[in-house]
């Protein structure tokens, strides 16, 4: 095991002087799935931008895959609460979008389109969307769109997947279904993952390690290792151990929020 993402006492203040995160340190190991939880506005989305190099830190250093991050990463998969699919493209063509951008795929795409499309269809099938290749996003339900968005983040085989509240807008049943879907792809591919979420059960279900952040300016307050055996399923969420972990997180977040008042 060696570290894949390292933040070393990182601070970032936005233009207006808002100090979003301050002295934030965190390490995610290669192939590990990490979750980040914390009160609203504590800098979780900011953390995403720092790790992906979309914003440079004001102070401190960010290292991804052994390299100091200086600009936007070129290979990272990202997903958000809003699926952000292109409405004029079919599901399949939405999936091909990263391949049209990421090197070296963009140069091989024209010649090896059939192979890439087969790969995209396989990925769609693995999230239960076989047969939806030619549908447009607005012909899919919210949950289906989110599955497509997840596939789009993974199609080019990134070593790092960043998810910012990806299931926040879905109903409880769909959300739990997608936890299993995400866990399956992760267990198959073993990329490094960072998941920002408000849902503590989601964090415990999916993560190997959960970071709890303080209120703004955000820092890591505590780290919880989740050693529940995999694959986890809905039954796991009813075990006492699962309940205990969720409860511990819940208490910490309540304390943070109390402290703010």
């Amino acid at each position: 095991m060696h570290p894949f993402v390292e933040l070393d006492r990182v601070s970032l203040s936005y233009g207006g002087g808002t100090l979003a995160v301050d002295g934030l340190s965190l390490t995610v190991e290669q192939g590990q799935f990490a979750a980040v939880v914390g009160p609203s506005g504590c800098g979780k989305s900011t953390l995403m931008k720092l790790v992906t190099g979309l914003m440079p830190p004001t102070r401190g250093g960010v290292i991804v895959d052994g390299q100091e991050v200086a600009g936007p990463l070129k290979i990272c998969g990202m997903g958000f609460q809003n699926p952000t699919l292109l409405p004029w493209r079919t599901t399949l063509r939405n999936l091909m979008l990263p391949l049209e951008i990421v090197r070296p795929h963009r140069h091989k795409l024209r010649r090896e389109r059939a192979g890439y499309e087969a790969e995209a269809k396989r990925l769609l099938a693995s999230v239960g969307l076989a047969g939806f290749e030619d549908k447009f996003p607005w012909q899919l339900s919210g949950g289906m769109q989110q599955r497509v968005s997840l596939c789009r983040a993974l199609i080019h085989g990134p070593k790092l997947l960043m998810l910012d509240e990806p299931f926040g807008a879905l109903d409880a049943f769909t959300r739990e279904e997608l936890w299993a879907v995400l866990q399956d792809v992760w267990m198959e591919r073993r990329f490094t993952g960072i998941l920002v979420t408000h849902d503590l059960r989601e964090a415990v279900y999916l993560a190997d390690v959960v970071y709890v952040m303080t209120a703004r300016p955000g820092r890591v307050m505590s780290v919880h290792r989740i050693d529940l055996p995999r694959p986890r399923n809905l039954e796991t969420t009813f075990t006492p151990e699962f309940g205990r972990l969720v409860h511990a997180l819940r208490d910490e977040i309540s304390n943070v929020r109390e402290a703010v008042r």
Partner: peptide, 19 residues
């Protein structure tokens, strides 16, 4: 957010404009 998705894939300004 879509811009973030594309930029973290290494998309240039021109890529984003065209796609």
């Amino acid at each position: 957010e879509l811009e973030d998705v594309l930029r973290s894939l290494g998309a240039s300004k021109l890529d984003i404009l065209l796609k």
